[in-house]
Design a protein around this nucleic acid. Structure first.
Length: 702
DNA sequence: ACGGTTATAACT
DNA sequence: TAGTTATAA
């Protein structure tokens, strides 16, 4: 087998996905020049997706809807829903899940973005080839397939003939020519034969996606991710393209380096510049050593293979995002210049994040442990000029937003007691990551609480994994996910009916479509090893045997998360519950944010700080006052000052102060990093870290 | 002031 | 590790 042809890899990309989602919601928009835009007030909103009819008029992404209307007066403009004062992409994410689910019946897939997925078809292809005996591969199985580099004209007369053909005739001619050049299907190790079979599978998959979701897509089929991504775009929309390795030389001889995935930015530009080459194929002139010299060992190796059409990046079996986040820009005049504004928008973002995290927990059985807050300050050019993180212990908007505020407030050069915020913020970003498995229903009383209370309170009645979980002594996650998918199909069916009623000419189609969809599922999935459940089986974890405190002693929803995050819940005497969490130690004095305490302490325990207006536990007021003292002291240091010898003076045993609770907290917890501060070179540390360490040290009873 | 909102991976 | 930067859709 030739080097670099070991796998069959495909990339499937939805055609103008957001537009298709809007067209399915509102069938009036179908087959019309149409865009999706977000926000309205400024020039009709910014366009984020464009139908092919609209592209024909010159409408593009990033155009203002008002400008696009000038190019195309009949343009239909669908608007992104807004909630919490910001664009809400939920309908597109949900549509993406539908698509991913259908594709997962055919192969293990890697979700590359909301509208793209890679798949490694090698195993399926080999299986299919074995079952083919010596059947020919017939062109009618590849009616939407282009073969890159075909038809090949060997004479000038053929060239003239080809020029006269329309696009599909040319496609058909090229396909026929290529198929005729393949060995018999008994030769199962032929790289090009394997691509042909891969293309058949992708034809079937794309048909299933359209039948089951109504969405069309395009695909590239080749031996690796870079090549399949590259050719996916060559025959859009609603078509797929095969790239045999033998066609790479010609294709690469005139392909600008910037067209290759990962070379569209600075690296690509520096290659063009330093080597004085335009096209990716020209890189074959250089030795691997030469390439490594200029661009590093890793890039050197990668480029050396890549310019020959070879890439070994694996398709990663993953269809869930690794982080869930939201952000909003506040540009120019709208930049956030008061503390209140910052708090308000953090709250809005936290509300969206909370909703999405809770849904994610229900649907995917996992919980995020890390919260990252990013901001951009006026005048900054980088996408996010600053980011800090802390533990994420509970899915609660109030806590998320107050913690977020706590870890960015040191940025406010106006000082914490001022109303103003400066420099003004032009971007706020919240993101949750570091997922781990959520406890299952079998983990005792808490689990019961989890499934009955949390789910019902979140209005997720259409997705009810709890039903299946409750009666199973050993609940299985696949059951949970499959039940979600069943529900998703059900939902789709309803959508379909709805669409059919609204669209005049579709009434009789819908029933048939559903039927053929399920038929297609049955026939295909049976021929595939494992299917989706086997994929999920791998991710299944043994349920933990730990039995936590029984639900009755737990008063608030917090107990659920406490058990997950290994926090210590210390119940004691007086009707009060003291809860020690790691996240309250997240780079800020413990008493600076106390949402969990607010659930446990009674209001009489609080005093109002006359410096900041914050509610502070009475017995912590002395330390709180010290905190303001420290803050003032810090503010008196002009700025990037690497807090005077602070690190060195922090006792090495500083982290031991909280050795008990902390040692059990998530490794992601900030406290770890802070205590490692002294080990790191001083000068490189950003000022804020120094600040936090300095302030923190005020509270250590050494 | 006007490309906004997400997301992943590499680097340090 | 945490935080920044690059890249992409």
């Amino acid at each position: 087998m030739e080097y670099g042809t070991e796998r069959v890899v495909a990339l499937v990309d939805m055609d103008c996905f957001y537009v298709q989602v809007e067209q399915r919601i509102n069938p009036e928009l179908k087959n019309k020049p149409c865009v999706v835009a977000q926000y309205k007030t400024w020039k009709g909103g910014g366009i984020i997706a464009v139908s092919y009819e609209a592209r024909a008029h010159g409408v593009t992404k990033n155009m203002w809807a008002d400008d696009a209307k000038k190019l195309c007066p009949d343009l239909q403009v669908a608007r992104v829903r807004e909630s919490h004062g910001k664009a809400d992409l939920t309908p597109y994410r949900e549509a993406s899940v539908e698509v991913i689910e259908v594709m997962s019946r055919f192969a293990v897939i890697e979700r590359a973005s909301i509208d793209e997925a890679y798949m490694d078809l090698t195993a399926s292809v080999k299986q299919r080839l074995r079952n083919m005996e010596d059947q020919q591969i017939e062109p009618h199985l590849l009616t939407a397939t282009f073969i890159q580099g075909y038809p090949q004209a060997t004479t000038s007369q053929e060239e003239t003939e080809h020029a006269a053909l329309d696009k599909d005739a040319l496609r058909s001619q090229g396909l026929g020519q290529w198929l005729a050049s393949l060995p018999p299907t008994t030769q199962t190790d032929s790289a090009e034969l394997q691509l042909a079979v891969g293309a058949i599978i992708v034809e079937e998959m794309r048909a299933a996606v359209e039948q089951c979701t109504g969405f069309q897509c395009s695909a590239g089929i080749s031996h690796n991710k870079v090549l399949s991504k590259l050719v996916c775009g060559l025959n859009k929309p609603n078509r797929q393209t095969v790239l045999p390795l033998s066609s790479v030389t010609q294709l690469f001889s005139s392909l600008p380096i910037s067209k290759i995935r990962n070379l569209g930015g600075k690296l690509g530009a520096s290659i063009t510049e330093t080597l004085e080459v335009e096209n990716i194929g020209e890189l074959t002139k250089f030795t691997q050593g030469h390439l490594a010299q200029h661009f590093g060992l890793k890039h050197g190796q990668w480029l050396y293979d890549l310019c020959r059409g070879v890439d070994f990046e694996p398709v990663k079996p993953r269809h869930l995002p690794k982080s869930i986040g939201c952000s909003k820009n506040f540009q120019g005049k709208t930049s956030l210049a008061t503390k209140e504004q910052v708090q308000h928008w953090l709250q809005q973002l936290a509300l969206e994040l909370e909703e999405r995290l809770i849904k994610d927990r229900e649907m995917n059985g996992r919980v995020a442990k890390l919260l990252t807050v990013g901001v951009k300050q006026a005048g900054e050019t980088t996408p996010s000029s600053f980011s800090r993180c802390c533990a994420l212990a509970r899915y609660e908007a109030n806590k998320i937003s107050t913690d977020s505020f706590a870890i960015i407030k040191s940025l406010n050069s106006a000082g914490n007691h001022q109303q103003a915020w400066s420099p003004p913020l032009t971007l706020l970003h919240l993101s949750a990551s570091k997922f781990s498995d959520a406890p299952t229903a079998s983990s005792g009383g808490i689990g019961t609480f989890f499934s009955s209370e949390v789910i019902s309170s979140q209005k997720l009645s259409s997705f009810s994994p709890s039903a299946g979980l409750a009666r199973q002594p050993t609940p299985k996650r696949p059951g949970m996910i499959e039940s979600f998918f069943q529900n998703a199909s059900k939902k789709r069916k309803e959508d379909h009916v709805e669409l059919s009623e609204e669209g005049e000419n579709e009434l009789k189609d819908s029933g048939e479509e559903e039927k053929s969809c399920s038929e297609s599922n049955a026939s295909t999935s049976s021929s595939l090893q494992g299917g989706i459940s086997s994929f999920f089986q791998k991710k299944q974890v043994p349920t933990s045997a730990t039995t936590t405190a029984d639900g009755s002693s737990v008063v608030t929803g917090q107990a659920v998360d406490s058990s997950q995050s290994h926090e210590h819940v210390i119940t004691q005497s007086d009707k009060k519950t003291y809860v020690h969490t790691s996240d309250s130690l997240c780079g800020v004095p413990e008493h600076s944010s106390l949402p969990e305490a607010a659930l446990s302490f009674s209001t009489e325990d609080y005093l109002t700080c006359d410096r900041c207006g914050q509610a502070v536990l009475a017995w912590e007021m002395p330390e709180h006052t010290d905190y303001h003292f420290a803050q003032d002291l810090q503010n008196s240091f002009s700025s990037p000052l690497p807090s005077p010898s602070s690190s060195n003076q922090i006792p090495a045993n500083r982290s031991k102060t909280h050795a008990g609770p902390r040692s059990k907290t998530s490794p992601a917890s900030c406290s770890r990093t802070l205590s490692s501060g002294p080990l790191r070179p001083q000068a490189k540390k950003p000022k804020t870290v120094g600040t936090v360490v300095t302030l923190d040290s005020f509270f250590k009873k050494s």
